[in-house]
Design a protein around this nucleic acid. Sequence first.
DNA 1: CCTTCCTGTCGAAGCGCTTCGACGACCAGC
DNA 2: GCTGGTCGTCGAAGCGCTTCGACAGGAAGG
Lengths: 336, 336
Amino acid sequence: MSPPRTATIADVAKHAGVAVSTVSYVLSGKRAISASTRQRVLDSVRALGYHPNAGARALASKRAKVIALVLPLRAGMNLPVLMQFATSVVTTARQYDHDVLLMTADEGPDGLRRVAASALVDGLLLMDVEMHDPRVPLLRQLGEPSVLIGFPADREGLTCVDLDFARAGALCADHLAERGHREIALLGAPGVVYERGTGFAERTLAGFAEAAERHGVSALTRPCEESFDEVCSAVRDLIDEHPGVSGLVVHNEAAVGHVLGALRVLGKRVPEDVSVVAICPDDVAERASPALTSVLVPAEDVGRQAVRLLMAKLDDHPVPQSTLLEPRLTIRESTK
Amino acid sequence: MSPPRTATIADVAKHAGVAVSTVSYVLSGKRAISASTRQRVLDSVRALGYHPNAGARALASKRAKVIALVLPLRAGMNLPVLMQFATSVVTTARQYDHDVLLMTADEGPDGLRRVAASALVDGLLLMDVEMHDPRVPLLRQLGEPSVLIGFPADREGLTCVDLDFARAGALCADHLAERGHREIALLGAPGVVYERGTGFAERTLAGFAEAAERHGVSALTRPCEESFDEVCSAVRDLIDEHPGVSGLVVHNEAAVGHVLGALRVLGKRVPEDVSVVAICPDDVAERASPALTSVLVPAEDVGRQAVRLLMAKLDDHPVPQSTLLEPRLTIRESTK
DNA sequence: CCTTCCTGTCGAAGCGCTTCGACGACCAGC
DNA sequence: GCTGGTCGTCGAAGCGCTTCGACAGGAAGG
């Protein structure tokens, strides 16, 4: 009944009758090892339930096999998208045999500095990067491999991924215009989001407006708060002032349900009186009544892509500076 | 222009004119060091921007200063609560100078085994533990310090934290009964949740029913799906079959908005015709119209408490087997 | 005054792993 | 029959840190 100390590489080596370094080479594949020796080592690994000690490995190899995921855990974020994103990051990272350290943005630049200097992680994934994000200059200076989700104003020397929000806005306008709507409107994020300069909101607007113009359709846009009452009066004002509006785009996940409710209250039928397109996750669109035609924010793709890019950087492979992910429109019952 | 290799403890020692071990003791406080020496070392640390190498520290001290947070990142979870919880875990862990490794439950027991054996983390925080969770026996066997969020059937030898859902259910019933409602109903989670045996749903039901009985009030309960149409017909059926029901408890965050919408459609005014109490986060309750009287799921408290318990275990302090957190009812506009 | 006990500091021995250089053994080519 | 390469394996030197035991030097106690 000796203490069941977890097996070390030395135990494996002894068990297999080889040198420690041989075990290491079998496991890393960095040198050729004969098939018979390899098999013997692998058997010992299994027999002893060996798992390499992460600290020792990190110390010796200068690679922690951990990446940091920095999430903006302040309120007002689009939670489901964030979750999907986090899930896909973790899952993809595991495929590359890496783990994920979760950090909140509110530890700020110091947090980045800390994890980089302590070699706790090999690279950084920053989500929700703003146009003029204070972390961006630090990131450049740190020289730690990183991938940003979102597009800061100056992308020089960085690697950025995001949904192509301009295309998403355009897709909505296209869809409505093609169905013959001549006056369309976009209900966007709450005002503060625009003020913060997050970028994606503006880009959606721009794509929407530009596409509308291309179709010769009149387009208006306005921010949209998230409480039922505010949504309701916003929708009422919109319809009062522009009775010709027959197509509505909602780019605000928390508000989509309320918009439908408001329309119901105002006696407008969807899609008979007004068509509605949402930019939101599929589950929200499907849960609504009527099910909403929607443009999907491909959070999973973004996460997967971001991890891939980071892994490429860790291997010193060159990667593109910007990656834009294509949005996809799913037609459901709310447009005609 | 030599490579700006990050400073090591040896650099600090040299800079301060002391031994490496002295620096270590200053930083860890594990031995007495004179004030003057301490100050000199601290100055050098700052001057060189020294951060201890995490791997080396972990290897030598057998403590990674990292805890694993295992989240159920499958669909159908209550996202905002989960997020709040994660945030509070990260924030609290940082207060104890620990970082958080994010894992998804879908790596399953092997994932736990892996991080434990590799000494990547010092302890585990498992969220959304079910009554008969397959990870529970493994956890016992692993002997890794851990804290569970949720109550499995057999808690022997474990440490568990959760909201007191029975109290939450009771609080709702109490509130409605005190206001004179004689027939009340609870709309719960989707059917699958009950089938999965997650525990919290049943406990809410039980607390609700028991409190209603204590008040001599008739109570009925039923599961509740999350699409608008299903919610709508569920509410309609309920009211048709039990026209006397004047108090409604909604324990399903995705459905609360829909319930209000359904009531509007059915021509029922809230709170004049029917009072509604929700068990959900405050922001959802506030965003609704009318603002909902609600029982808060104290996700932040749960996270904070869970980390504290885990830290205590890491320091070999004894901790209680079960911790139940008190729910809090906030009265808003939806009940009378 | 000598012993005993702290206090503050140091040196050195690991922690478990990767990786470099070395070195037999074996094969091919001349 | 040598030389020169590969191939497969080994030993040892760290990686940067913690921690143990040792040991000066001074304070306290007799």
